[in-house]
Design a protein around this nucleic acid. Structure first.
Lengths: 244, 244
DNA sequence: GGACCAAATTGGTCAGACCAAATATAGGGC
DNA sequence: GCCCTATATTTGGTCTGACCAATTTGGTCC
């Protein structure tokens, strides 16, 4: 979880999940600090630090007189990770929304990067593409190289807004998916096609082409991930059934 | 500023700005809580709550033994607002990056909304468009109606990820720009064109068309805002000169 | 110069106290 | 009975002073 192993973080994690699970309705009064400190058998200071975190997440709003729960819709980006981790199986809809968002942001980054790259940076990118192509048959081995490639793109595009969003999103999403051991089943052919198209776009300095290629790739990824999730969910259901 | 009028928020605001102004280099040791509490003449508890906020922002990382400053590149989205508000005049590059990001996210939202809207929602959207067209000569009056229109789109598209990002971005950016009294100089003709195109896309249920229209609009907006900022900056410089 | 150990520093937590703002409650006027 | 007001209570914000454990620091010894 996101917890440091401090008491205040632990408390914050528990309360956060309770809010995300809709245990309090938006607008409800939140338990008082003194009540919480007895409930968790902790000092009020520790509870206060936990509440401070929840406030930063946009989940509660504190005021002298009492704290109130806020709508998840008005929360901060940082709640998405915990929201995904809430159940044993991720919400397919939410995962799809993640990927769609990644898609448009990454496409934009790639477009700007290809258009703005210096000659040296272009050769660096080509180098990384070759690296990727050399490992295109081992998805595991591609992972870190993809990361490196996209990181280079992000550095070249140099858009702080997108970078911060992507930081958050990646931290929330990618790690979650990794932890659950998701392996979207992408056809090798489609990956090869992506790599060659990206190579062409680099040679021609055609950001638009690179952008389209990424969009295509994410479309396929969305389908594949959707299948993977449904598959896992089905298996989970049948396991439950066999136990019962 | 983003401060509640509590001491801990005040301290957090000051320290946040100091970090954003690069007063500490990334990796540096951050002053100890006891030092800070004497500096701000506040209790250690108040300082701790301030540091907790900075940690949530991703600006520092605390550990027994000492806190350390982190790179702004690895911070949370929520630093963008303070980053914009840092100087008297916003960084044109950052503003442009904001708009570009808004552009892709809004375009995506609009596309999905148009494609997914129910008949009732379609008529609602058309209604809002008519409202907008009726006030297309008064930019001030359009503002809240734009907000309403995009809010409706966002509700229909129903993508939580984008919604949370937009929440953050809007809270950080739009309000900042409003406060500074920015009025990007958009030609009435181009707005009318946008509105009619959106109307057509609604009738045809053509999300792609709506998306393209929004992209175009944001392109023009970026140019207009860029001009407005440069104009303001120039005037500011000349004022400084005349004083000196 | 480098490895190792003790002392000082630092973050994390606790307890008990006070204030001011917001809320809940009781009372009085209609 | 209903509404409004004044009072009492609850609640968040802050302070003080203390203790523990982990880290850092500085010096010592080889």
């Amino acid at each position: 979880m996101s917890s440091n192993n401090t008491i205040s973080h632990e408390i914050a994690d528990i309360l956060r999940d309770e809010i995300l699970r809709q245990r309090y309705r938006s607008g409800d009064r939140f338990p008082s600090e003194r009540d919480l400190s007895t409930r968790f058998d902790a000092s009020r200071g520790a509870v206060r630090e936990a509440l401070s975190q929840l406030e930063q997440l946009g989940l509660i709003r504190t005021q002298p007189g009492g704290a109130r729960v806020q709508s998840v819709n008005s929360a901060s980006l940082a709640v998405l990770g915990p929201l995904l981790a809430l159940d044993d199986h991720p919400d397919p809809l939410l995962v799809d929304q993640f990927l769609q968002t990644f898609s448009v942001l990454t496409s934009m980054t790639v477009k700007n990067a290809v258009n703005a790259a210096s000659p040296e940076q272009l050769t660096q990118l080509k180098q990384l593409l070759v690296e990727l192509a050399n490992h295109s048959d081992d998805i595991e081995a591609m992972q870190p190289r993809w990361r490196e490639f996209l990181e280079a793109m992000s550095t070249i595009a140099d858009n702080l807004v997108v970078r911060l969003i992507s930081n958050d999103l990646k931290a929330q999403f990618v790690d979650q998916m990794m932890k659950r051991g998701f392996q979207p089943d992408l056809k090798k052919g489609s990956i090869d096609r992506l790599l060659t198209t990206l190579g062409v776009s680099l040679s021609k300095r055609d950001g638009e082409l690179a952008s389209k290629a990424m969009q295509n790739h994410f479309e396929e990824l969305r389908v594949a991930v959707g299948k993977a999730i449904r598959f896992k969910a089905d298996r989970h259901r049948s396991e439950q059934f066999s136990v019962a």
